[in-house]
């Protein structure tokens, strides 16, 4: 899985009626899987890849997607006192 990369990026409609970004991950064996990202995860992903445009994400490693998803879902963890 270490060589898996982002192979395609597309705007997508989400279940909740918001715009999301569908990132396709291509594995070394040629298999592909789509992963949907919300607005927060996309912002983190763009920053982490130093990309200004979603098309610049193509070719970047899957680890950026993993980290963005993790950071997005953890963004309010352990801050119950807000």
């Amino acid at each position: 899985m270490s060589g898996a990369v982002i192979s395609r990026v597309q705007l997508a409609a989400t279940h909740d009626g918001e715009a999301g970004l569908m990132v396709t991950i291509r594995f070394e064996n040629g298999g592909e899987t789509p992963v949907a990202l919300d607005e927060h995860a996309v912002r983190i992903l763009l920053e982490s890849c130093r990309a200004e445009h979603p098309d610049q994400l193509v070719g970047r490693g899957w680890g950026h997607v993993r980290d963005a998803l993790e950071a997005s879902s953890n963004r309010f963890m352990n801050s119950n006192d807000q």
Partner: peptide, 10 residues
Amino acid sequence: VPSLLFIRFP
């Protein structure tokens, strides 16, 4: 509210 709808337009 931020939306990704315009993400392809920097």
